[in-house]
Design a protein around this nucleic acid. Structure first.
Lengths: 199, 199
DNA sequence: GTCTATACACTGATAGAC
DNA sequence: GTCTATCAGTGTATAGAC
């Protein structure tokens, strides 16, 4: 209970938690929600199964936690974009460059795959599908006004701005899957391909 | 053993098989490979679990069968495109229009989702990942020469044609996921968005 | 060809020792 | 904070009757 002991405990706690989180990310991404087992996650993290349950109340909560932080992180990037200086189109270009760059970091692509898992097998996890769909709405709320502004200036093509946004996000999701496959084709992917969808 | 009896048997067989196949497609697509259960598939098909095993030796084979026929069907469309008349760019435009049109038929999007499942959770099914990667190569072999021709005529952007093809396919995969979500944004998606990636 | 009943393995989750 | 041992539930696959 001394201050020293407390610090040590928190350090151990943080370390174990980080190990479990990144192991869970890896295992869930490669095997899917139902295909991943808590045993496997514990093993990948180098800890016992009991310890995983010490930090996360259930498998479902573990997955939900990963999905939530993945969504939150992407959303944060989008928020930064919206409040950045420059014209709407310039900000979109900056965002496209940022996405392409971060997507090629292995951990980022895992996060996108986790979100994809939530969408394409969420039917088995009660409430998850609705939760993700709800959070995803926030993306559109932020991005659509930007597209509309770019349409007014003639830099983006006319048409339903929500459909343009949907196409933009769909491409990003598809690219994440590509990176996940590690076929070595990532290098040739340019931000321009992404922005061209809106033209 | 009479001709009449034989015909009847084959009819029953074909009917049951079709029911099981489409039920399996639906269940696998919505729950993922590991999330889907043979009980659920049998129930969705309106038959007993034992009958499913009468037609398919295992869960793994059932899934593999669906993935294979999904890949085969897409590949067939690509083959038709390549041997069609017109310039390379015209054929690419035709293909884009075809993809967008068929993608919005519910069954087609399920097939794409099945392929996606194979890629993003195939780690649990031995050999599946390699099998899909191998088959996917055929797409590139067919599509890349078309892109190269379009590059020579200046209609496609310069750069690694394989990367362009990868971007093209990634976008299609992403769109399939979008359609799968049924958010009603599909209507605004145009073939031009798809071809613009290559420009 | 179709069904019911069941064997056997595995998984998520808990309890209790250290 | 961390581990081992264990239970109850569920899933794949098979056997055998009709």
């Amino acid at each position: 209970m001394s201050p020293r002991g407390k610090e040590l405990n928190e350090e151990m706690r943080a370390e174990a938690l980080t190990k479990i989180e990144s192991a869970a990310l890896e295992v869930f991404a490669h095997y899917g929600y139902h295909g991943a087992t808590m045993r496997h996650i514990a093993q990948a993290a180098g800890v016992s199964q009991g310890l995983v349950y010490h930090y996360f109340p259930s498998k479902e909560d573990t997955f939900r936690h990963l999905v939530d932080s993945a969504v939150a992180e992407s959303l944060e990037a989008m928020r930064l974009l919206v409040s950045a200086p420059g014209t709407a189109w310039q900000r979109i270009e900056t965002y496209a460059a940022l996405v392409i760059e971060t997507l090629f970091q292995p951990e980022t692509s895992l996060r996108f795959v986790i979100m994809l898992q939530a969408l394409t097998q969420g039917a088995g996890v009660p409430g998850l599908l609705d939760h993700v769909a709800e959070t995803t709405e926030a993306y559109y709320d932020l991005f659509v006004p930007l597209i509309e502004e770019a349409q007014r200036s003639g830099e983006a093509a006319p048409g339903d701005p929500r459909a343009l946004a949907a196409a933009f996000f769909s491409f990003i999701q598809g690219l994440a899957t590509l990176v996940f496959q590690r076929k070595g084709l990532e290098k040739g992917i340019t931000p321009r391909m992404l922005t061209n969808i809106l033209r």
